[in-house]
Every structure is written in structure tokens, then in C-alpha cells.
Write a protein that binds this DNA or RNA. Sequence first.
DNA 1: TTGATAGTGAACCATGTGGTTCATTGTATG
DNA 2: CATACAATGAACCACATGGTTCACTATCAA
Lengths: 123, 123
Amino acid sequence: MNHMVHYQARLDATFAALADVTRRGMLERLGSSDASITDLAKKFRMTLTGMKKHVSVLEQAGLVTTEKIGRVRTCRLGLRRLEEEAAWIEQHRQLWSARFDALDELVEHLKRKEKTDAKRKRR
Amino acid sequence: MNHMVHYQARLDATFAALADVTRRGMLERLGSSDASITDLAKKFRMTLTGMKKHVSVLEQAGLVTTEKIGRVRTCRLGLRRLEEEAAWIEQHRQLWSARFDALDELVEHLKRKEKTDAKRKRR
DNA sequence: TTGATAGTGAACCATGTGGTTCATTGTATG
DNA sequence: CATACAATGAACCACATGGTTCACTATCAA
């Protein structure tokens, strides 16, 4: 089960990459169009060096790919290597949506309960 | 737009909480049944103190709730406060699935392209 | 060739993280 | 009561993170 290690490591990297407001902002920004490091650095009021680090993190996590042409490195949403990732992506979408569905039901249930049963005390 | 701050802070906390293999394991474990800190500490071969920290992180992120009865603190999947979170949860499920759908299409497209157009060079 | 521009890397800094040990508190139970 | 057990908090440790500055390289344009 050696691939489980990589699997977990990839999850670590992905979630960690998403756990930063700047990087989430970058993903949104890149959702509308590609951008250079300079573009991103300006938009998020940060040094080039700082922005480069964020780009590297997203790249490491496979969420962004980059290509350097001449002196500018262009960043785009990570579409490369997607075939390899498709498996776990789908797996997780299902995992979470299953949980969410259960919660949706529960919330619905609680709503109805609360409405019809408004006076019941907790504990 | 002050609530945006909390919104982002919550995302930070949630993703950071998920960016650890032990904590993801705990969530799976708690998916099947509630557990005490001692239970979890044993399962993940860790000190009580260490496990307590992980529990606190998940609790902070709203992914787990706990209740101390007597001397044992019982941990369960966090269903409390879900109404407040439902909004961003749904939002994000859509955000990601939109992206995934786009990617699925693209991959499909590439597959077909590759099959029918097998000899075309990149660049 | 000479600047200006875009990115990179090394070094540094403050803070956060994942873990430990040790001491302490509170709760069960013989 | 006495002892064991569950959890907690403080203090510490090594290492990661998010940011900076400074020096450097490579490329574009006049």
C-alpha cells in the first residue's frame, strides 16, 4: 500500500495549499485568466519573491501549472496531470457529498422538528 | 464586508484542519462512531496531550464537537452550527464541481482529440 | 551596449505546528 | 480513604510557513 502514502501526501499538500486566503485568491484570479508572477504580486500587494513562493506551493499541489517564456513566467490553473488525479478527485467529491447529503438531511430534519416541536428543551 | 473576514478565516481553519493525515483519519474514525480522547490517542499511537491538540483543531474548525461527561470527553462529528456553515459549504461544492466539470469536459475533449488526431505535435 | 524589467535564490525573521514530557486536576472505584 | 484513570496545561523542541531584503541572472528594448 505504498501508493497510499503518496495519496495522503497529495491530500496534505492540496489542503495545505488551500488553507491560505492569498492562495485561494490567486486561484480565483487565475480562474478568469492566466497571469504572470508580477501581475499576481501587484494584485496581492506582495513582493515578487513572496508571490513566487505562493505560486510554487500551488504548483507543488498540482493546482497551478506555470511556463516560463522569455523572462515572464505565466501561471494558469493546473490542468496538466489531471488524468492521474481524476481518480482521487472523484473519490473525494463523492466522499464529501455523501457527508454533505447526510448533513442536509439532518438539517432538514432538525428544521422540521424545530418548527413542529418548538418548545422542547435541550438536555 | 466584515463577515468576509470571518468567512475567509473559517476557510483557513477548515482547510488547515484537513491538511493533516492524522486529523483526516480521526474524521473517518468518528464517522463510524463517537470516541474518547483516549480511544483516539490509542488508535493513532499518540500521547493524550497530542491527541487533545488535534481534537481542539478540529473543534475550532467546527468539524468536530465534544462533550465532557465525568472524566471522559467524547468526540463526535461536528453537526452543530451547521446552519451557519451551510451557505459556504454549498457555495464551495458548486465552485469546485463547476471547475471539475470544466476539467472533465476538457479531459474528454483531449482524449478524443488524441485518438482522432494522434500524430499532432505539441509546440 | 546599456538600461530597465521579471524572476530567482539565499538568508533571515517572527510565528505557527505537531509532537513530546512532566506536573496537576478532577473523577471513579476498591 | 487510597489508588488508578482521563484529561488538561505549561513548557519545550525541531521544523514549516509566510513574509521580507538583498544580490544575482536573464531577457527585452532603445
